[in-house]
Structures are given as C-alpha cells and as structure tokens.
Design a protein around this nucleic acid. Sequence first.
DNA 1: TAGTATGTTGGCGC
DNA 2: AGCGCCAACATACT
Length: 273
Amino acid sequence: MPELPEVEITVARLRERALGRTILAVEAPDARILQGGSPTELTERLVGRQITSAGRKGKYLWLKLADGQSLVGHLRMTGKLVVREAGEETIPYVRFRAGLDGGRALVFADPRRFGRLWLAAPGEREHLPELARLGPDALEEPLTGEQWHAAAQRTQRPVKLLLMEQSLTSGLGNICAAEILFRAGIAPRRAAQSLSRAEWDRIAAIIPEYLRWAIAAQSHGDLKLIGEHGAENVFALYRRAGQPCPQCGTPVQRAVIGQRGTYFCPRCQPEAG
DNA sequence: TAGTATGTTGGCGC
DNA sequence: AGCGCCAACATACT
C-alpha cells in the first residue's frame, strides 16, 4: 500500500513506541530483506544500540541509532514496520524481528517480500543510492507550480506518471496521483506537457493538502493497507469503478495507465483540457 | 481452474 | 535519454 501518507503514519507510530528503546536481539529469518552485509555482521551492528529518532523521505523511512547508524526501510507493496508489545496480537509474514527492552519488538512483516531494509553507517544514510536519487519530499518540500510546469515540458508522458516520478518529487504513488488529479479536475491520461501553468498551480496547491487529509483519514486505529482484510476505503475514486463520482454522480471509470489501474471521473476530469 | 489483478521499484532493451 | 515492459512474490478474486 504504502505511499507517503501510510509511511508517515508508520513513522509517527514508531516514534511513539520505539524511541529510547534498545535493541537486545535480532532475528532475520529472511536474509533477502535486510541488505548490506552478512546476517552475523548486521546483527552485531544492531545489538545493544538505542533507537534515538525516526524519519522519512518520500516512501523511505528510517530509525536512527545512538551510534549514528540508520536502519532504513522501504515497505514497497505490502510491507509493515511496527513495534509490538508483549501480549499484542502477532502479525503474519514476519521477515525481520528485533527484540527491544520492555518486552517490545520491532517487526518487519511483508507477505510479498518486496520490502527492504538497509543498515547505513553513520553519515551514510543520505548517500544510499536509493535515497540519494529521491526528489524533494512531496509533503515537506512541495514543488511550486512553476517547478512542475518546467518539469512537464521535458517529457511526453501522461501527467499521472509525472506525479509518480520519485526523482522529481518523492512520496506519491498510484493512489495519491489519481486522487490528487481528481481533486484538481485533470484527466490522468493528459500529456503532462499540455497542462497550463494555472493547472500546475492547482496541482501544486492540492498535493500537500491531499497528503495531510490522507494522513488524518488513516490515522485512527491500526493502519490497514487498502485491499487488506478489514481495511476501509477512504479514497474518493480508488477501486470504485462504476460507483457514482462523489462530486457529480457520473460513474467512476477505470483505465490502465503505465500498467497500473487508474480511476477517474470522465465528467470532472475531461480529457480535453 | 486458470488467468488476472494488487499499492513499488529497478533493470533491461529499444 | 526517455520510455515501456517485466520481474521480484504471495494472495484474492473472477
């Protein structure tokens, strides 16, 4: 699931539950998940370290340790990084687990195993290639309409794919892009080049607004990824093909753009600008 | 039942 | 360089 809003919620929960805790033991049942060295070496680097802060850029997140190392993660499609307390319900598909003091455990669970963890040496986090190639965070350092407009002149791609380009701005995924374009009244398939400066100004203003809304809308209770059993769909259009558009009642349509399911309202988001 | 869809990203080939 | 496609993997749905 996890796009910027869900990663932000994950980081907030980690701040509440992991800060000040010390790693007592490491179990990495799936060696593919934790990258950057042998399991033995990585375990030695983690054990005994206190967790001092948590952060995020785009869809990447990290826990900083007292010695300056960072445990960096990406949840990809189905990953979760959570702290479980003694007695709490266990999670399935645990790929990495670090026992903490106070009976807690830092757990990385991921059915599809696309998610990754890296252990970065002090001062090296920003230089991980994965983080180094990210553009500014879509919530913390949003692009201006002028910057979007300029970037759009350099591509032939649909506007939706430009929004999802992590090297331009980081954090927007398939759902965010579609929901933002719905709020902006712009068809996802339109060529990015064809948007006016005024339309980009609208998109630039809507992006942080939408992200703040999505964070708030999913901040209650246990974070459930869309599609997961028991997850509620808070989104306006996502996975609502055939249902009435919340603004005009026209049936929501589904199309495939960039090999991804894309939902839009044909009336609120006309193809011709 | 087999085929298709599912949030992401990186690599490959044109 | 830019862009499209596909793999990585597990599960649910039609």
